[in-house]
Simulated assay, not measured.
Amino acid sequence: MQVGSDRARRTLAFLRHRISSGEWPINSKIPTEPELMQLIGVGKTTVREAVRSLASVGMLEPMPGIGTFVRSRMPVSSVLTDYLSEFGAADLLGYRRALELEAAQQAARHRTDEQLAAMRHALDNPATAPEQPFGRDHGKAPGQFHFLVMEASGNTLLVGLYAGVVTALRQALHSGTVVHATDAETRLSEHRVLLAALEAGDIAAAAHAMAQHIERDLVPAEQA
């Protein structure tokens, strides 16, 4: 019993570290079950329990027949997500806009060279970055770059609230009440404009770039 408990804790710690460190980016697919068994040196049951545990707090999302994907670098409050899901698309997107504008301004003040490098990497390596279509919109909610901007704000409350918003947005994308107003190439171009403002430490330019991006990113389906 004690051995199994140690293995479970070790497996959970392994997965959480890969997620929280950014080694497995937001919206990326984690290794398969057999690969995890080999990497960690544990059995199938232990891996499945650890994945279920992280899925229950919104950090992972298993998609049958496709794989398991990283959805948040920190636990997501189910109370917050349930509360946000009660609101309409316009209210949810307005709340997201408020959080992201504040984060962009704070990130322009507080971002570190390491955080800027992580943002550049996310934009320059689309194979491991967000916006991976899987036939449905599961992977198209705001991804790694947006979370990195949030974290660069230095405000952990913003990051926690944003994680709940993204979970609610993913549900809205899946139900079709929220859609993208631009294509992936346009979103990437707008991300680069925002990154340039953050690199320059220009608070006004960062807020302007984020505002323009938000207005043209996700919209209520009736406005598309």
Rank of each mutant, 00 (worst) to 15 (best):
I40S: 09
P133M: 07
Q38V: 15
T11N: 03
V79M: 04
R18E: 14
A8W: 12
M1N: 13
A163Y: 04
V193P: 01
T81P: 00
A184N: 11
E100W: 09
H191S: 11
A103T: 01
N27W: 06
L157A: 11
R111P: 07
L158H: 09
E190Q: 13
G164S: 12
V178D: 08
Q212G: 13
A207Q: 08
F69T: 03
R10C: 04
V3R: 13
P75D: 11
A90R: 13
V178G: 01
A117V: 05
L188H: 04
L54Y: 06
E215W: 08
D202N: 15
M74W: 08
A224Y: 00
R216M: 08
Q38A: 15
V166P: 01
D6F: 03
I203R: 07
V47L: 07
L188N: 06
P133G: 01
Q223R: 14
I214A: 10
Q105R: 15
M150F: 03
W24D: 12
A118V: 04
H138E: 14
A89H: 05
I214R: 02
L188V: 06
A118F: 02
M150D: 08
A181F: 02
E199D: 10
L218M: 07
G65Y: 07
A98L: 10
P75C: 07
R52K: 14
L116A: 02
P220D: 03
R96Y: 09
R71E: 05
Q171K: 11
T45G: 04
Q38H: 14
A90D: 10
G88L: 07
A8E: 11
V219P: 02
F145H: 11
E215L: 11
M74C: 01
E215P: 15
A206N: 05
E131H: 14
L80W: 14
H191C: 05
E49W: 10
L54N: 04
